[in-house]
Design a protein around this nucleic acid. Structure first.
Lengths: 371, 371
DNA sequence: CTGAGAAATGCAAACGTTTGCATTAAATTG
DNA sequence: CAATTTAATGCAAACGTTTGCATTTCTCAG
């Protein structure tokens, strides 16, 4: 009958075996100078005594926590959720834990989170910023201490740091040009707050596509607001409050696209006949809605994997600043569906649309340097 | 110009101010015996020197990490994602961090996760188990060390521990009875692996409803399999491979319900006219699909809040075993939609259906003791 | 056997906090 | 103003590891 309380420590093992703590420690960590025999003895005893390493003690001594921090706006949205999933699973393979935090798109919260994660002495940090983060100085501590830090998706414009992001310019461009190809001449763009890089770039892509196709850019055809369902609905009301109706809508977010679609259905505006719709992110919901919605896939799997790869890379090697501050672009792909006149999918279960693995390969090559 | 490397510690502050480390520590923690003046001096200096507390050192000394562990099957599914969101945000208010882990429904991974979370010396643990976890002994360590542990949703049947779960029996019952009320006489039930308590209870509810309404329980009308899209599609193929077709289907999962609906639409089976469908969890997707799908809401917000409340409770007070091993039931609610002949929603943006706050209040009262 | 080199083990400090107890300084009282 | 209480500060140990260096124990050639 073992004593009730009391965690077993390596000194307990050492005593029991009449060894020094150092040998026990080394034995457990498979240090080369320890004989196979003692290793066996130690491990067996550890098991028998129910020993569990104390990560905090080790972390304190080693100055590493084996924890990675992740800050995202919210994990209930498709894209960040998908990324978080990948990151979590991937990190596990490397023996790292993940602390996931949500800023809820509040700068104040983001600042606090950065501080607590720093206090936890995370070995690395991945961040997708708030919609309104333009000053990134609350991440300075990490840079000062040389803690690897990677921004993704919603990234800073001129904060010197490693960035992994989708090709938002191209995404905006392709989405718009696709609408043009399908015959649209009057295309509304629903954008987000321009404090966020994603939206400025997609908007730029939109403009570029219009220009290339000799369509005028009209200010009153572009909307800016936080991309909630409520705002989307209001935007729809404004858009369809007076004729002429647009014949195409590029929403920079699938939630918005879906809401617009619902509005159209409710008001007898036929999609795609009267008005075509394109969303962004390839949220699985775009596929189950009727009609299904064309969207821009951002390859969250690829992005997640590359975030982890970058972090592990930075942790292992003390990297040259060149890499610490480089930018990687993950490709995007337009997924055509019914809302722009595409065919309904063959069978909903095994969509032929995207082969992630292939895209993956392409993505890995598409590493660009920051200009 | 301050020295490049080197984290500032409280001893640096102490030296700078010619104080002892203990006073500095106490000052930073607002200990009552420290004069207001020194507190001010210390805090100011701390700020000036860019001091950041080291949570690992404090944790080691205090034997508490201020970290809560969470193990869920996967965070990309609606229900666990929703719960995780709530838990994370709620914990933040209490000054706790959350380490979210996914077992990917693998028992092996769940065991490993339990071990690493224990190594991190989490102050509490919340778990929704694997589909196949029947032996829970890998959580024994936590119980031995008196680390608070709460199971939710997918909970053990006879492992002595705090449990917070939805009223699955009632959910299964209501879903089935609703179909009966709508005129169904031949109701298929698509269930999950019976190793998981959720499914046995919902199945029991289904049976009960049939019996109460004098409908026969037919073995070949119930399906068991992991609730993936692929399996759902196959189930649909079997269900509709020969007449008579069922006139109602109760799927114990919204993904399955949605897939069945897609199958029906593709094969010209009219929903709800020919066949009615009820899902489970009230995944937002059930609302945007056409026709929208009746489902059972599980109040993830309520459940998440109560998980956190229970954990904080257990951490604060060294609780009597009675509470540590009690069971709480969170109510459920049937949300009627078009797939069972309900009216289409008024406006998709502000559905009148559920007022979470109100339900919340109801839920808090509905604490049942284990029989 | 002896001695040298290699292999295995041990010593003790360090990581950055917190905290019980001892001590000193300040305030209060008779 | 001495004596006593109260307020403020300091000392040093402890939390559980890891690791550089010193020491001991082998192994084996000469």
């Amino acid at each position: 009958m073992s004593s009730l309380r009391s965690e077993k420590t390596i000194v307990d093992i050492a005593e029991e075996l009449e060894l020094s703590v150092s040998t026990v420690s080394r034995a457990l960590n498979d240090h080369p100078n320890i004989s196979a025999k003692t290793k066996e003895r130690v491990k067996k005893m550890a098991r028998k005594m129910g020993y569990r390493p104390n990560a905090m003690a080790a972390g304190l001594r080693n100055n590493k926590s084996k924890i990675i921090g992740l800050i995202v706006p919210r994990i209930s949205m498709f894209f960040p959720a998908a990324i978080s999933t990948i990151i979590q699973n991937k990190l596990q393979e490397y023996g790292y834990n993940l602390i996931i935090c949500q800023s809820n798109d509040s700068l104040q919260q983001e600042i606090e989170l950065a501080n607590t994660l720093y206090s936890a002495r995370v070995d690395g940090l991945a961040v997708s910023a708030t919609l309104y983060t333009t000053d990134f100085s609350h991440f300075d501590i990490f840079k000062q201490q040389n803690t690897p830090i990677v921004f993704f998706d919603r990234t800073p414009k001129d904060y010197n740091v490693k960035v992994i992001k989708g090709d938002d310019f191209l995404g905006g461009f392709k989405a718009t040009e696709h609408l043009v190809e399908k015959g649209c001449k009057d295309i509304v763009h629903i954008s987000g707050p321009l404090t966020c890089n994603l939206y400025t770039e997609r908007l730029a892509g939109y403009k570029e596509a219009l220009q290339k196709n000799k369509l005028p850019y009209k200010k009153n055809r572009v909307f800016f607001h936080e991309l909630t369902r409520e705002n989307a609905w209001q935007a729809a009301e404004r858009i369809f409050s007076q004729k002429p109706y647009p014949d195409g809508i590029f929403a920079t977010n699938d939630t918005t696209a879906i809401t617009i679609l619902e509005y159209c259905r409710k008001h007898g505006i036929r999609v795609p006949e009267d008005c075509k719709i394109v969303g962004y992110s390839n949220d699985p919901r775009t596929e189950i809605v009727t009609p299904s919605i064309t969207s821009v896939d951002q390859y969250p799997t690829t992005m997640g994997e590359r975030i982890v790869a970058a972090l592990m890379d930075l942790i292992q090697a003390r990297h040259p600043a060149a890499y610490r501050h480089s930018q990687e672009i993950v490709p995007i792909q337009l997924v055509e569906r019914e809302s722009t006149g595409g065919m309904p999918k063959e069978t909903p279960v095994a969509p032929a649309g995207i082969k992630v693995s292939a895209a993956n390969g392409a993505a890995v090559k598409a590493v660009k340097k920051k200009k």
